[in-house]
Amino acid sequence: MIVHRKKLNWIEKLYLPAILGGLAITWKHFKKSLLGKGVITMQYPEEKWDAHLPAWYRGAPTLVKDEHGRERCVSCQLCEFICPPRAITIEPMEIPEGDPWRKVEKAPQKFDIDMARCIYCGLCEEVCPEQAIYLRKDYSITGLNRTEMIHHKEKLYEMGGVMHGLVFKWNEKK
């Protein structure tokens, strides 16, 4: 496509009408914003996007329990291996005799996610065969030092809560 350059007449060549037109446009915006209309800035700490976040939002990774209160994680360590920045550290343990979920065999003894390293990629959630790890909507993770930025198991379960359904293989009634 050829866009032909318009031939300017002498008034247009002075550029003053165009400049005044531009000034009128910016003045309109200035006046509108001064009256508080049309300002699109969100005042962050007071106003947040939280209500508008989609269900698939990739926030902080968390661990979830199932509807029976069982830890879903079976310490297969797949997330630990796939994690690109190596933010996840898992120490597995055997589930002791007498535990109702003994047949699951393994559970995490220690499950740390270093949020100073996490890149919120969601690969851990994708790779998990037990659907035990989910990226939730928390995004403002802060701490005063590096150790505060490590989320331990308790914190991860507290953030994750309970997730119903989806994995039924450990439930004999289903």
Partner: peptide
């Protein structure tokens, strides 16, 4: 401030 108001910011 004026530049912000002209650009619909605060």
């Amino acid at each position: 401030r004026v530049s912000a108001l002209i650009q619909d910011r605060l």
